[in-house]
Design a protein around this nucleic acid. Structure first.
Lengths: 193, 193
DNA sequence: CTTAACTCGTATATTCCCGTACGAGATAAA
DNA sequence: TTTATCTCGTACGGGAATATACGAGTTAAG
């Protein structure tokens, strides 16, 4: 998964990096412009330690985004995408909606600091998995075919991102946010009358 | 419409202000963190001239947001919202989707610099108009009632904002963006089977 | 135990942006 | 034409954030 360029790395360094990346994911998700200071503080490490592992801000953002996408991949890999596409999508969203929402937020955070090519490259694999499922659903007549596929994928992201936002704002609750998001996505994908 | 605190203001000042506000709307819509320099440059005016009319960044953002919302109000006021709610909404979106998308973007830009109370206050009127239409549609059985009304309003914003974004990215074209956005919104509001 | 790796504080350079001050020149309004 | 307003350049100060430099103390690994 992670590039193993340096064969020797001490255990505490490994731990620090993990905590920094976790902090970056958390912090950047709720504020795309979060300071390096803030991330270091949330990770419980000195700012200089952080710079020891990530020379530039872009490095850190990319690491956070990669970690989130890898986590997403791991979850997606564990979901059964066979059978009825509608139910498969429900399963997928139920188990990964928050991760997808996080990825979308990080993607936005990375928009400015990473070259757009690198961005698309990182995001290609997870997007493709959703895309394939939607395509199969379209073939089987379960999902609408009158709108561009990439648009449908984007709308799913917008909805999940929005759901996370409304949850933070207190307009949705932990109890109903997943249900609401899933119902909305299903409505978007349903073929028109 | 606009407060007339200063009875005497020269015509060229009036013109400058108009150009600055227009530039702010355009610039902030596509980059919420746009620099005052950039806005002044796009307005074709010196930075100091800008400061002559807007003492602080918040003032400028608020002016831009107000202008966009007023423009939206003007358009909304000209749309016939009576009759079948579904068709009324289609009319409304067709004639104002880009303005709503712009307002959403500016709203996001203003999130950090304006007190949230002032923000809600500015946004209350236009939002209410859409909300009323949706409510009427719900009563008449045209729109779904199983999801919270504020959520539906938010989703409309997300979709329109996303459509504008995809248009900028080149994934949608001028020709199909409105149609796509409207179809998506209709799908969201349609009662479930 | 010895070494190399890691942590982390302070200090500093740099950059970017906001906002203010001053003042000279251009222009609209009377 | 006279006057007040407006434009706009240059310059300055402050603040925040990124990134580097140096060095002393701490800790894992052999």
């Amino acid at each position: 998964m992670v590039s193993q360029t340096r064969p020797r790395r001490r255990a505490d360094a490994e731990r620090s990096i993990a905590r920094i990346v976790a902090a970056a994911r958390a912090r950047l998700t709720e504020d795309p412009d979060a300071t390096i200071d803030a991330i270091a503080a949330e990770a419980g490490v000195g700012r200089m330690t952080l710079y020891g592992h990530f020379k530039t801000r872009a490095d850190l953002v990319e690491a956070a985004l990669s970690a989130a996408l890898e986590a997403g991949e791991a979850v997606l890999a564990g979901v059964d995408l066979e059978g009825d596409p509608q139910e498969a999508l429900d399963r997928l969203l139920a188990s990964s909606w928050s991760l997808v929402a996080e990825s979308a937020a990080l993607l936005e955070a990375a928009q400015g600091v990473l070259p757009s090519g690198r961005l698309r490259e990182l995001h290609a694999d997870p997007a493709k998995r959703v895309e394939d499922l939607l395509r199969r659903g379209q073939r089987e007549g379960v999902f609408r075919t009158d709108l561009p596929l990439p648009w449908l994928v984007s709308v799913i992201q917008y909805v999940l991102h929005g759901a996370a936002e409304q949850l933070r704002a207190g307009n949705l609750t932990e109890a109903n946010v997943a249900e609401t998001a899933v119902a909305t996505v299903n409505a978007v994908l349903r073929p028109p009358a």
